[in-house]
Design a protein around this nucleic acid. Structure first.
Ligand code: MN
Ligand code: MN
Ligand code: MN
Ligand code: MN
Lengths: 214, 214
DNA sequence: AAAATAATTTAGGCATACCTAAAAGAGGAG
DNA sequence: CTCCTCTTTTAGGTATGCCTAAATTATTTT
């Protein structure tokens, strides 16, 4: 196993490969790698027993692959918590460092880090941190874009993309912020919310990338 | 630059390549790689401007190479301090994890970690942590093997080798321990010291790997 | 049910970083 | 100064992980 292969497993997991067959193209797009290279690598990952490969129809993770990808997500998210809480990193900066640290994190290191951080349940972006056995603590959520006028809720999870996180940071939107929907323009128009006594206008697309308490 | 090349630079630095020409064979031995592969890699490192290469006579680090290798040693030793102080690792366990973490440590991460650790001067094995500009805090030391009977001193630095560190740990020998030399057998025979009111017998070779206040 | 389109695999190449074996150079002993 | 030994480089080969282009398979449209 190499950092490369680990990123394949993580991507397959994120695309839903714990349950469904995932298409070659989806993986290629997620990793910015050619479909040809993905085919090659999947053959290798199958030989190593991490994925079940149905040529021309996609792949899914084996139990071993699920375990490994969950461990990587766990490593990644634990490091994010550490960087934010103890090293003065911001919300939008932690992801890139964690992307590298996750690959050099032994089980022993993950466990010690988890204890040091007092066993956090979520990363700074609201994604659940899998436990050692791969289980995740799920709470019911819905997209902000699917709320109605006058609804009130709390922000719990956001999409982890640098540009988007900066967009949110500029608008003072954080995990745990409570807010009320003031208005929704039709045809996927902007949504206005009141958060900490300030009005904030969000594009429809942004509202699709914010999840709130159901 | 890759983790591989970084380990070359670190090895050259440790072998004295900041000042002297280092022989191919020394690097090959240090990295457990064939001399042929070392020749190849040195050619590449020269093209990248990290080393000055005199074929058949050895290599030394350029200013850029010195800077890079010092940063790596700094990263390595900062992580060692973190693992020991905050994650419950022992003296003999920190090295291997740091060997990987050092390669995924951005300047920003190193700086934040340094601040979090309150700017430590030495790693858990007593090696100086270079500052960002590559300077190290040197204190005068001598080998325990070169002491005389009745001499008293304090342990400041030990060779970083897993087997040896376990040997020391079993005998309760730590950085900062004060002791007195009780006896020295001739012809490189064992050396007996009194440390924390207990007599400890050290082989001559072990005593060569322990440095104490001069 | 064909034809057109899209997805996937295969073929052939390239760069990195390692290896062993053979050739070439450097340095010491006589 | 010449031989002998040890070191170093060069040559040729392997494995990994990526690429583009071509061939194949699947899916959608007509
Ligand atoms: Mn990664
Ligand atoms: Mn995250
Ligand atoms: Mn290393
Ligand atoms: Mn150390």
């Amino acid at each position: 196993m190499t950092p490369n292969k680990e990123d394949y497993l993580k991507a397959i997991n994120k695309l839903g490969g714990c349950d469904d067959l995932i298409a070659n193209k989806k993986i290629a797009d997620a990793l910015h790698i050619s479909p040809a290279s993905v085919s090659e690598m999947l053959t290798k990952l199958e030989k190593e027993g991490a994925v079940e490969y149905v040529p021309y129809h996609g792949i899914r993770l084996t139990p071993a692959g699920k375990q490994q990808s969950a461990a990587l997500l766990r490593n990644h998210r634990l490091w994010e918590v550490f960087l934010l809480r103890h090293l003065g990193y911001s919300w939008s900066e932690v992801h890139e460092e964690a992307e590298l640290l996750e690959h050099v994190t032994s089980p022993r290191l993950a466990q010690s880090l988890d204890a040091f951080l007092k066993h956090p349940d979520f990363c700074p972006h609201g994604a659940a941190i899998p436990s050692t056995d791969g289980k995740i603590k799920a709470i019911p959520l819905r997209k902000l874009a699917q709320m109605s006028v006058q609804d009130t809720s709390t922000i719990r999870k956001v999409t982890e993309e640098k540009e988007f996180l900066n967009y949110l940071q500029e608008r003072n939107i954080q995990i745990g912020s409570s807010f009320t929907v003031l208005s929704i323009e039709p045809y996927e128009g902007p949504i206005t919310i009141k958060l900490a006594d300030k009005q904030i206008v969000l594009s429809y697309k942004a509202a699709c990338h914010i999840e709130v308490d159901a």
